[in-house]
């Protein structure tokens, strides 16, 4: 039993990589989906706005990428990609904890950003020249995903430097 526990560092690290990718990914999938529905509605009336509404649809896509980024960093730091390494239980748990910010902030910020993006799409449908302003509002929501990403990344680099 104790041997099992001692070897479970890698498991916790993988759990962290998984949760970062999957939760941020779920958020982005929901967000991009919602914005896509609204974008398709606008296209039915104004096919020429495709380029503009596509950008709005992509705004909530970034959280998923941040999740992927953190997941990948953890995998490569613990040696699941590249050379295998010895990971202690503590290190594994630390990696797990470091994944939490982007996992949760990613999930919710993508969903709320998509609400903002949907509103932005309707703004652009009525006033295509107001694109610049309409795109800034959803970007405000993303700030918090970026902050979470920052802490996740700094934590991973910090853990890797501990040894």
């Amino acid at each position: 039993m104790s041997e099992f526990f001692n070897n479970s560092g890698l498991f916790f690290a993988l759990l962290g990589a998984a949760i970062a990718t999957l939760m941020a990914g779920i958020g982005s999938a929901i967000g991009v989906g919602k914005a896509g529905v609204a974008a398709a509605g606008v296209l039915a009336e104004e096919p020429s706005l495709f380029g503009k509404v596509l950008i709005f649809q992509l705004l909530p896509a970034t959280q998923g990428i941040y999740g992927l980024l953190v997941g990948f960093l953890i995998l490569s730091n613990v040696g699941l990609i590249g050379e295998p390494k010895d990971i202690s239980v503590l290190q594994g748990m630390l990696y797990f904890a470091s994944a939490l910010p982007i996992a949760f902030a990613g999930l919710w910020s993508a969903i709320y950003q998509s609400k903002c993006a949907v509103a932005g799409i309707s703004t652009v449908a009525k006033k295509p020249d107001q694109m610049g302003k309409a795109i800034i509002l959803p970007a405000m929501v993303e700030t918090y995903a970026i902050l979470a990403l920052l802490i996740s990344i700094l934590a991973i680099f910090g853990i890797a430097g501990m040894q």
């Binding site: 990428i65 941040y66 992927l68 980024l69 990948f72 960093l73 700030t143 970026i146 902050l147 990403l149 920052l150 990344i153």
Partner: peptide, 14 residues
């Protein structure tokens, strides 16, 4: 302004 770091890292690492 920490987003300068975060987005820069995101581009590089991806």
């Amino acid at each position: 302004y920490s987003r300068l770091l975060a987005l820069g890292l995101a581009t590089g690492v991806i």
